[in-house]
Design a protein around this nucleic acid. Structure first.
Length: 963
RNA sequence: GGGUUCGUAGCUCAGUUGGUUAGAGCGCCACAUUGACAUUGUGGAGGUCAGAGGUUCAACUCCUCUCGAACCCACCA
């Protein structure tokens, strides 16, 4: 005998024990699920960042995923929900850096190895905590298959992916302008940069024309970058400036002569129509600089300080340099004016530091070739995105995608599986998918042509120098001068900067061996870059770049061992999570799991990582396993605080899910996250809402208490004995169908709301009350048990607990593995619906006439439906709080329904009745107007017209009785 | 600059392919209450569905515009 239930539901004492029972049962694991299951259902849990603790967004995601998982498990699928955590490179590193900061240390103080040890300690602590929290939210995921993005198996997958892409020439290394976060001291991808509206100023600076007293005025938000200007650009169609195109300007302060170039990208409307061009520190200027072959002068270093190139400002912070430059310009009367200006400033997504665009050597992934099939997969419907409107956003982003900077100068992450043979990290890569550079080099007084295995080199880079005729590495040298001249067209589609015609044939011959896919194209302009080297280091590696997971035994090219050194950069954290759906199933090994569970069924995550993650998974999965990673993407909205802002722990506006779960129960939290919300739509959540669902859970608890308090012989369980039985079974069937359909269509709110309405209103308010009279407790118990199954995906804890007391015990008799109910035959619910209206009218009568409860009422009723009332009088009386009731015709009418009149023996307030007459008349008028409209009767469907007709007749009859 | 979402009862939000006198929860008002449940029950008040046009027999729902709010993307210095 189950011990008696507490008067109110106490989640705290129940949840942990139930979770433990589930976990021990093995039901989370598809391999140990009972029953014959052939069709797989897989969800790959978005790996939780090990940065800290869970927030409500996680709780929402887990809830939706758990609903889907539990539903499919009960519906007979071989169900796998695979959990895991993400190392979250930059975010976690920041957390640990902050921790160190409290100890007065920086990561450089303790070094890479010790720092990583600290991060692992962090990861172990928070990874465990997060998994515990995930358990406490009821997630029915298979912990035996749990993964972490830096597990050895997943690291192997990352290496495999990187090396494959590298060998195919899709990954390359080059010096490009990138988003540099000075605080994190790393490059970032475009996605990791947020644009925040900032009020700033626009400075108008005079640039004197060379050999003239005239000047051109340029406008800038960053006056300090003028030190690195190498041109002024104007729109070629701008009448104001056409005469100056090709002329020179003397750059103030630096006194450097720079050209005026024409470029269509310059907006004539903005500022003065003339733009200062700083290729080294602005992405747009970088592009202009590339077009016009402008020199690139780095005046800002990675430490956010001015470089030697900044002359007298060397060593100053960017902010100080700005003030000093402005002051200098003012004293030289070159500052025309300053105006207030609001613009969007680029900031680091993680630490909010303003981004400094810098040229630095990074690894990039050519992503357009991967994007193409990924676009097709969504376009063809192989992948479905819910809600659909996000498909548009996806297409827009994918169609405009730019190469992805995948290297990070972080310590926490997957170290790039690249090995260099040589002492310097600037030694360029060999197999990088483009032809490379051939340079004429002035060295030791002789002109020799060498080949460099990279382009976009800058002064100060140390490079491996190879004799391109013999292929022999001569040494490692430092570039101290670069010049550029244009020579004409080259026959290769990749920019072969600096190739001379005499070497092209040799090169093609060479590259045909290494890069059989290289294509020939006659339209590429070529330039000769002449690099001068300061010194040659004879003790060197061969400069080869080797892609390898482990340290190679020796350099495959020069066979030396002593110069091998791994690339120090790590990969963007999203590179590894992009492999998540298949790396966690064993890829690159051909595992049974991979075959069975991939593609996964549903990807459930929040819309704000559509690009970061979802898009990348689609691209990588198509690339590496030739399958979509998932069939459906369900995007949930963001949980907002009361004021409609994204919840933030630092601002204290967040609701922490775990104390809430402690206070109100996990089931209540889950309902509050899923009910009244819709896919992709952000929503506000308040504690009051959670409390409301706690009340519902308690209501359920008490319903169960009542049901359990009644003895029921098993045999009579499904015997429909009366009108109410018929009705509740009918309603239950409808509910069953609706819940099933709505979950299948990802309409969780509708499914949950239907469950809520049924339990509280149909079942508790009506059926349960009736059953106190009718005492058909078999049906009562049956309905509750079916309802528990239907509701289990939403509120697993309380349903499992009640189930354990309702059903015979036994491992396989846990609710979590019960078969999903199938809707039974339809039952007519009309009879009871009619009585409900009657009861409501009577209750209404008492309330509106302010008849106190103690006063007893006597009611007579008659009409064609009267026998129906007569049959059920025994429970209608208590429900309507009428003491005496009988079938007999009366001269007066207190109220009526179609086929039923009733009279209450009580003096009533006449004004109430008057109000009702007015309302009824106006409604009747409305219906009449509708029917007298010939257009309506002719064109509207017959059913609609008939409905209006019968309604009108009904209302007219009602009115007649009232008068 | 391009794009998206939202504007429905005091508050938080539902509203499926256009057809019910527009719904729920919370709050409010009135009444009830010792046996499933005060984390309760019964009843009620409260909305010209942001505004203006249009399409239609019929518009909260479709179209256009306007006004508010939020967000995403983008190299206007």
């Amino acid at each position: 005998m189950p011990k008696e239930l507490e008067k109110t539901y106490q989640p705290q004492s129940i949840e942990a024990a139930i979770y433990k029972r589930w976990e021990r049962s093995g039901f989370f694991n598809p391999d140990t699920l009972p029953g014959r299951r052939t069709k797989p259902f897989t969800i790959s849990m978005p790996p939780t960042n090990v940065t800290g603790e869970l927030h409500l967004g996680h709780a929402l995601g887990f809830t939706v995923q758990d609903i889907l998982t539990r539903f499919h498990r009960m519906a007979g699928y071989k169900t796998l929900w695979l959990p895991g955590t993400d190392h979250a490179g930059i975010s976690t590193q920041i957390m640990v850096e902050r921790l160190l900061q409290q100890e007065g240390l920086s990561r450089d103080d303790i070094g890479r190895e010790k720092f990583l040890k600290r991060v692992w300690e962090w990861k172990n602590k928070y990874g465990t905590r997060i998994n515990d929290q995930t358990r406490s939210l009821g997630a029915s995921c298979d912990w035996s298959r749990e993964h972490f993005t830096m597990d050895p198996a997943l690291t192997a997958a990352v290496h495999k992916a990187f090396i494959t892409l590298f060998n195919e020439g899709l990954i390359y290394r080059g010096a490009r302008i990138v988003n540099w976060c000075p605080r994190c001291a790393t490059a970032l991808s475009d996605l990791e940069v947020k644009h925040i509206e900032t009020s700033s100023k626009l400075w108008f600076i005079r640039y004197p024309l060379s050999g003239s007293t005239k000047y051109i005025v340029v406008a800038t938000t960053r006056p300090e970058t003028m030190l690195g200007d190498t041109a002024v650009a104007v729109n070629p169609k701008d009448q104001r400036y056409t005469q100056y195109i090709g002329k020179k300007i003397i750059l103030p302060i630096m006194n450097r002569e720079i050209p005026i170039v024409a470029d269509a990208r310059v907006d004539r409307e903005f500022g003065t129509g003339a733009v200062k061009v700083t290729p080294a520190h602005d992405a747009a200027d970088y592009d202009i600089g590339t077009t016009h072959h402008l020199p690139v002068i780095n005046i800002i270093g990675q430490d956010n300080k001015m470089t030697k190139e900044a002359g007298e400002f060397y060593g100053k912070s960017v902010q100080d340099a700005r003030q000093d430059v402005i002051a200098r310009l003012e004293t030289e009367e070159l500052l025309e004016k300053t105006v207030d200006y609001a613009h969007h400033q680029a900031r680091c997504d993680r630490c909010n530091t303003p981004i400094e665009p810098l040229i630095s050597k990074q690894w990039f992934l050519k992503i357009a070739p991967l994007a193409k099939p990924a676009i097709a997969a969504v376009k063809s419907g192989t992948i479905n995105i819910i809600p659909k409107r996000f498909e548009k956003v996806y297409f827009h982003w994918m169609n405009n995608i730019r190469d992805w900077c995948i290297s990070r100068q972080l310590w926490w992450g997957h170290q790039i599986p690249i090995w260099y043979c040589g002492p310097e990290r600037t030694v360029p890569a060999e197999k990088i998918g483009f032809a490379g550079d051939v340079v004429r080099q002035l060295f030791k007084g002789k002109t020799v042509t060498y080949r460099l295995r990279d382009h976009h080199l800058t002064v100060g880079d140390r490079v491996a120098v190879e004799n391109s005729t013999t292929g022999q590495i001569i040494g490692i040298a430092t570039i101290n001068k670069i010049e550029c001249t244009t020579v004409g067209k080259l026959p290769l589609d990749n920019p072969m900067h600096g190739a001379t015609y005499s070497h092209i044939n040799q090169l093609i011959a060479r590259f045909k061996v290494h890069y059989p896919k290289i294509r020939v194209n006659a339209a590429t302009p070529a330039y000769i870059y002449t690099y001068s080297f300061a010194a040659l280091d004879a003790d060197h590696g061969c400069g080869a770049t080797i892609a390898s997971s482990d340290k190679p035994k020796r350099c495959p090219h020069c066979k030396q061992t002593k110069f091998l050194r791994q690339e120090e950069d790590t990969l963007d954290t999203w590179f590894s999570s992009g492999l998540w759906t298949f790396s966690t199933l064993g890829w690159p090994k051909k595992t049974i799991d991979l075959k069975r569970f991939h593609p996964t069924s549903v990807m459930e995550t929040s819309w704000d990582i559509l690009f970061f993650w979802v898009a990348r998974m689609i691209m990588f999965s198509l690339k590496f396993v030739k399958q979509v990673p998932f069939r459906t993407v369900y995007l949930h909205g963001l949980v907002l605080d009361k004021s409609g802002k994204k919840m933030s722990k630092s601002k204290g506006t967040g609701i922490d899910p775990l104390p809430m779960a402690e206070k109100y129960g996990t089931d209540a939290i889950r309902l509050s996250l899923v009910l009244g919300t819709s896919a992709g739509q952000d929503f506000k959540l308040s504690e009051e809402k959670i409390a409301g669902y706690r009340n519902f859970i308690n209501k359920l608890w008490n319903v169960a208490r009542f049901v359990l308090s009644q003895r029921t012989p098993k045999a009579q369980e499904l015997e429909i004995k009366n009108l109410a039985d018929k009705w509740i079974i009918g309603r239950l069937n409808t509910l069953n169908g609706a819940v099933t359909k709505n979950i299948e269509q990802f309409k969780f709110s509708e499914a949950g709301t239907a469950l809520y309405e049924f339990l509280w209103h149909d079942f508790a308010d009506w059926y349960l009350e009736i059953s106190k009279v009718e005492k058909n407790y078999g049906i009562l118990r049956h309905v509750l048990s079916v309802w528990l199954k239907l509701a289990h995906p939403f509120i697993p804890f309380v349903t499992e607990e009640i189930w354990s007391r309702l059903a015979p015990a036994g491992k396989n008799n846990m609710l979590i593995v019960q078969n999903w109910p199938r809707a039974q035959q339809e039952q007519s619910t009309l009879g009871l619906a009619f009585i409900q209206q009657y009861v409501t009218l009577l209750r209404n009568f008492r309330a509106e006439n302010k008849i106190s409860a103690s006063e007893s009422l006597s009611v007579s009723y008659w009409g064609s439906k009267a026998p129906l009332i007569k049959e059920n009088e025994r429970w209608i009386r208590p429900l309507s709080a009428v003491q005496t009731m009988g079938m007999s015709e009366q001269p007066q009418v207190s109220g009526s329904l179609p086929g039923l009149n009733f009279f209450v023996d009580y003096r009533v307030d006449a004004s109430k009745r008057k109000q009702e007459v007015v309302a009824l008349s106006s409604y009747i008028q409305k219906l009449e107007a509708k029917l007298s409209n010939k257009n309506f009767t002719d064109r509207a469907p017959k059913e609609v017209v008939d409905e209006v007709r019968s309604k009108l007749a009904e209302q007219r009859e009602k009115l007649k009785k009232l008068l």
